[in-house]
Design a protein around this nucleic acid. Structure first.
Length: 800
RNA sequence: GGAUGUGUAGCUCAGUUGGUUAGAGCGUUUCGUUCACAUCGAAGAGGUCAACGGUUCGAGUCCGUUCACAUCCA
């Protein structure tokens, strides 16, 4: 063979070329008609909101490693890609972008806004897909889907109607979390609680007939919505007040004092004001006591025009009103005490403003009913959780699941397929004409709301495969085999996919779910936009190349967080260089070797060091496959590394150097044996590493092995497998390695370089003479004599 | 407040069902450029495995308590 590799590997240049080669050849397409065993994974669809971040890189590289491996193991692999419309997140960014350009989003019609958003989607969505290509990942790009494309929208509508007809979706007036900034309801999951420094206000409500009752509240601005004061029925100090009437300060409105266990005697004053429309607990109290909730806030959290509200406060922002009301209560001589208090405050995760409980009509999914069979399936072990302890988290949430608010007062998303007649009757149908037919020909208006973005993504595992049509893809690939995703969407996405999958398809959406950790910065801080400590994967790629980045990602142990640091990525670069250099060494020694004409040396006839490296290779292959089959990329890669670096580079290559330098001493057969061994071992190393560092391995395979093996890409060849003929008795090598280590130790002790030739080497008598040749060459000694301890003398003239 | 996880070398982390002398990479010290490779090689230093108690012939591993950190849920 006469193949030259350049002195240095130009990572980015070859990666770009290889990526184009892969893209042009569509190597990774599934074949639904193939009778190969199928393996299917879903790409967690990235939001069309911007650039790819490290979390995406993690999901996708880990998924790619498994998919490439499975493909090389002979599976018909379908990795389904696509993007998510990300209703609320996208709308927020689109509106922000419009504002930045001086356009008030509220001045545009819904049609105009949708137009802008679709342009945004095409632009940003395209960008993120392009970046995924750069990572060298291998989904079936031709099957790319978008949660709002026609097919998926059809699935959403169809399912909504089905669930409505089966009573699993309903519309109801309830207290929900309301985001005053985006003026929409949000689900419980989209609310995050933050502990804030606030005040606990104590003040008196005058009693009808004289006297006062003192209450404590963190939210005095809601007092105009008060419907009662509650006192615990067993509160010895205060229970005598139950049944009397109190007057809301700053007004002359009378409210009853009621007995309710909600009023904890230990908290505050023991008496609490009950504002059913503005507090979840109070709402429950209100239901128990028939208190009609009174809403005193506008949709953007200003005091509204409710009759109970004195003129001067109307239109005030909730926090301005709080201040004004407290000042006026103080002026009225009713304020008794103000305490500092840490207050858990619910925030809208997306808009980053405090949410309000708000009483509105919304659409809900009866999650409790959906959860029952899902819990059962998971209890039966139909889904394997990695790491296992995520099972508990998942189950705890599923068992306490609450109704899922699915309607959003937004314009970007799947519009709810419900129509109303003039009397407010609801008609849910797949099309407007169906709805009209249902109504008996009335004039209808369509519901303005859209669906929670997670509604459509929870259908992803089957909607992308063609549901509601009965496609062959659905039949072959559902349920999917494995899902890699971030743990922070276990409830948002994973749990809901499980519920929907079982409800619609009657089976779990995936057999294994592997939750990886977060990417942190080098100091262990969570990467976030607000902190500005994030690293753009594309920057890392520009600096070190895709393979180096992927090599680092493959170090992610199951379920633990990963720290990003350039030093870690450099390890990958070093490995690539090593692989490049050892390939150069192999080729250098194969110049007079030809795989087609050179005489084959059977393994059993090869020198022990050749048989040893092949036997170690077998072990590495077995270990790698064992771990890959468990989706344990970390230990797979470690097994390959250990073999490649420690066994092949550091030991075996050193063993055989003398056989190439002085072939006359060892005979032609010996050199040929080393050549065969190098040729085979390098091929296996390239194969083993292929899923992890696909670019450099493809390049080396193209240059060295393609012509003789045929085929178009390394990544469609068979993954290396254990070869029984390579398991030979090499037990003597343990002692040899030990002796060589001692000799190297002695060299260091005597400050003799490893290259310096030894004149005589004294070996302990227990070393079998058959190993003398190997030790002689590995230790670079001219003569060997037997003695008690290891010792050597230098060739005269060899410097230290 | 509840639940879960983590705590092993200076740093980042492995350590499979309890079993010889607890491993790797980075960093560090010393030595070495020989013809694949200084993005390298060799040798070394460095650990009471968070603490305490228990089970056991034997515990980094199992059990209990405590401490610290992280995440999720209230």
């Amino acid at each position: 063979m006469n193949i030259e590799l350049g002195k240095n590997l130009d990572t980015r240049e070859t990666e770009t070329a290889t990526q184009a080669f892969w893209d042009n050849n569509k190597f990774w397409e599934n074949d639904v008609r193939s009778d190969k065993k199928s393996f299917c994974m879903m790409m967690p669809p990235p939001n069309v909101t911007g650039r790819l971040h490290m979390g995406h890189a993690l999901d996708n590289v880990l998924t790619d490693i498994v998919c490439r491996y499975k493909r090389m193991c002979g599976y018909d692999v379908l990795w389904q890609p696509g993007t998510d419309h990300a209703s609320i997140a996208t709308q927020l960014l689109v509106e922000r972008d419009l504002s930045k350009r001086g356009i008030n989003p509220h001045s545009l019609s819904k049609e105009e806004l949708l137009d802008v958003a679709w342009k945004w989607k095409n632009d940003k969505g395209g960008q993120i897909i392009e970046q995924l290509h750069t990572l060298g990942v291998t989904p079936v790009w031709a099957r790319e889907r978008f949660t709002m494309d026609d097919g998926l929208s059809k699935a959403v509508t169809k399912l909504f109607v089905k669930m409505y007809n089966e009573g699993l979706i309903y519309r109801e007036r309830r207290l929900v979390n309301w985001c005053p900034k985006q003026q929409t309801s949000v689900s419980d999951l989209e609310v995050e609680t933050r502990e804030e420094h606030g005040k606990f206000y104590y003040f008196n409500y005058p009693l009808v007939g004289g006297g006062y009752v003192e209450i404590a509240t963190t939210r005095p601005e809601t007092l105009f919505g008060d419907k009662a004061i509650a006192i615990h029925p067993e509160n010895e100090k205060l229970k005598h007040l139950i049944g009397k009437k109190a007057i809301i300060p700053l007004t002359n409105i009378e409210i009853p004092i009621i007995g309710d266990v909600h009023a904890d005697p230990e908290k505050g004053t023991g008496a609490v004001k009950i504002t059913p429309a503005h507090d979840f607990d109070d709402y429950e109290v209100g239901l128990r006591h028939n208190l009609e909730p009174l809403c005193i806030l506008t949709t953007d959290a200003k005091l509204n025009n409710a009759e109970t509200i004195p003129e001067k406060y109307r239109g005030m922002d909730r926090y301005v009103a709080r201040k004004a009301i407290i000042e006026d209560i103080e002026a009225a001589g009713l304020l008794t005490k103000v305490e500092d208090k840490i207050i858990p405050t619910p925030y809208s995760q997306r808009a980053q403003v405090p949410v309000e409980p708000y009483l509105t009509y919304q659409w809900f999914v009866d999650a409790k009913k959906l959860a029952e069979p899902a819990i059962k399936a998971v209890e039966e072990g139909k889904i394997k959780f990695m790491p296992e302890h995520r099972y508990n988290l998942f189950m705890a949430w599923m068992r306490e699941i609450r109704p899922w608010t699915i309607s959003r007062q937004l314009w970007w998303g799947h519009r709810i397929p419900a129509w109303y007649d003039i009397d407010g009757n609801i008609y849910v149908a797949e099309t407007e004409s169906d709805a009209i037919k249902q109504s008996g020909g009335k004039t209808l208006t369509r519901d303005n709301d859209v669906l929670d973005t997670w509604f459509s993504s929870s259908l992803w595992p089957f909607s992308t495969l063609g549901w509601p049509d009965e496609t062959p893809e659905l039949k072959k690939y559902y349920s999917t085999d494995l899902l890699y995703t971030a743990a922070d969407i276990i409830f948002f996405w994973v749990a809901r996919m499980v519920m929907m999958g079982i409800y619609v398809m009657g089976d779990v959406p995936f057999k294994t779910v592997n939750f990886h950790g977060l990417v942190r910065d080098s100091k262990g801080q969570k990467m976030s936009k607000t902190k500005g400590n994030g690293t753009d994967p594309m920057d890392a790629i520009d600096k070190f190349g895709v393979d180096a980045l992927r090599y680092w990602i493959a170090t992610a142990p199951i379920g633990t967080d990963l720290r990003y640091s350039e030093d870690e990525i450099k390890r990958g670069s070093k490995l690539l260089t090593k692989l490049w250099n050892v390939s150069k060494y192999v080729l250098m020694n194969l110049s007079d070797f030809d795989v087609n004409t050179s005489k084959k040396v059977p393994v059993k006839d090869r020198p022990i060091e050749d048989r040893w490296v092949l036997s170690e290779l077998n072990k590495a292959i077995a270990e790698t496959r064992k771990n890959m089959d468990k989706y344990d990329n970390f230990n797979s890669r470690s097994a390959i590394d250990t073999f490649f670096w420690d066994v092949l580079c550091d030991q075996y290559v050193e063993f055989i150097k003398d056989r190439f330098w002085s072939p006359e001493k060892y005979g032609a057969e010996s050199k040929l044996s080393a050549q065969w061994t190098l040729y085979e071992v390098l091929r296996n190393v390239i194969g083993l590493y292929a899923p992890f560092i696909p670019f450099i391995t493809e390049l080396l395979w193209q240059k060295i092995y393609k012509d003789t093996e045929g085929g178009e890409t390394l990544h469609l060849t068979q993954y290396p497998d254990v070869k029984p003929e390579c398991d030979t008795d090499v037990s003597g090598m343990t002692r040899v390695l030990d002796v060589l280590k001692q000799i190297r130790g002695l060299r260091t002790e005597r400050k003799v370089g490893n290259g310096a030739k030894l004149e005589t080497l004294t070996l302990p008598a227990d070393i079998d003479v058959s190993f003398h040749g190997l030790i002689k060459s590995a230790a670079r000694a001219n003569n060997i004599i037997s003695g008690k301890d290891i010792d050597f003398t230098l060739v005269v003239g060899e410097n230290k």
